[in-house]
């Protein structure tokens, strides 16, 4: 654990709490993309399945449970409790255009199989194990789902950014949410540089997806710094 990773995690937590509190206090989810929140719930669910199989630390377990819980609470508030305030007409990004390609990519490019090896596995011309069956510990499925979650997280904010560009504005509190979410990604990039130098840690899948994700926030960061500081709303 280094300071960049810790502050990154806390920044991520801050973003999630800010969004939950905003919806709860204003009794409204206007301007919030329910689709992005469903995608984030899917991200946490598929990534943290390892809660069931491996223990890393109390911190790790606690944060995972909180992230998952908050993600589902947010989806519940948007689609159930404050459904009447949900602006579905402006939340028109086609989420399947993200989930399907990301799903395909996670099968093709992951830490367990190269595409050719995967082809061999599904054709049962495999070397030492099939994907599922007696004696399987689900590690390959978990690995592919982990990869899926990494790829999906990198693009899950797109429905939210699309919604803002469509309506042409965002409430200040929504921009704070996006700022902390982007800050979390930027801090994780520094964390990976740190870990590469001091621990020799290098996870290409996480790093490439993380860079893509951070780039998606750059335009927003620019607007946030130049506009939000001076006005109540984010004009585009």
């Amino acid at each position: 654990m280094n300071i960049f990773r810790l502050t990154g995690d806390l920044s991520h937590l801050a973003a999630i709490i800010i969004l939950l509190l905003k919806i709860w206090k204003t009794r409204s989810c206007a301007g919030i993309s329910g689709k992005s929140q469903i995608l984030f719930a899917l991200v946490f669910t598929t990534r943290y399945l390892d809660l069931l199989t491996s223990y890393i630390s109390l911190y790790n377990t606690f944060m995972k449970v909180v992230y998952i819980g908050c993600a589902y609470a947010t989806v519940y508030l948007i689609y159930m409790k404050f459904k009447a305030t949900y602006d579905g007409n402006h939340d028109t990004f086609r989420a399947e255009f993200l989930v399907v390609p990301v799903g395909g990519l996670s099968f093709l490019v992951n830490h367990d199989f190269t595409p050719l090896e995967f082809l061999l596995v599904i054709m049962y011309v495999s070397y030492d194990m099939a994907l599922c069956g007696p004696g399987s510990n689900c590690s390959h499925c978990f690995q592919i789902l982990w990869t899926f979650s990494i790829y999906l997280e990198s693009v899950a904010i797109l429905p939210q950014l699309f919604m803002i560009s469509k309506t042409g504005e965002a409430e200040t509190i929504t921009t704070h949410y996006l700022f902390f979410l982007g800050l979390y990604r930027a801090l994780y990039l520094i964390n990976w540089i740190w870990r590469f130098y001091f621990e020799g840690f290098f996870d290409l899948i996480a790093i490439v997806a993380g860079v893509v994700q951070t780039i998606l926030y750059c335009d927003f960061f620019y607007l946030y710094v130049t506009k939000v500081v001076y006005s109540e709303r984010l004009p585009l």
Binding site: D50, S54, S57, S139, F142, W146, A206
Partner: peptide, 10 residues
Amino acid sequence: STEPLRHDEL
């Protein structure tokens, strides 16, 4: 190996 990869980051 069937040992699952451990991802320690959130």
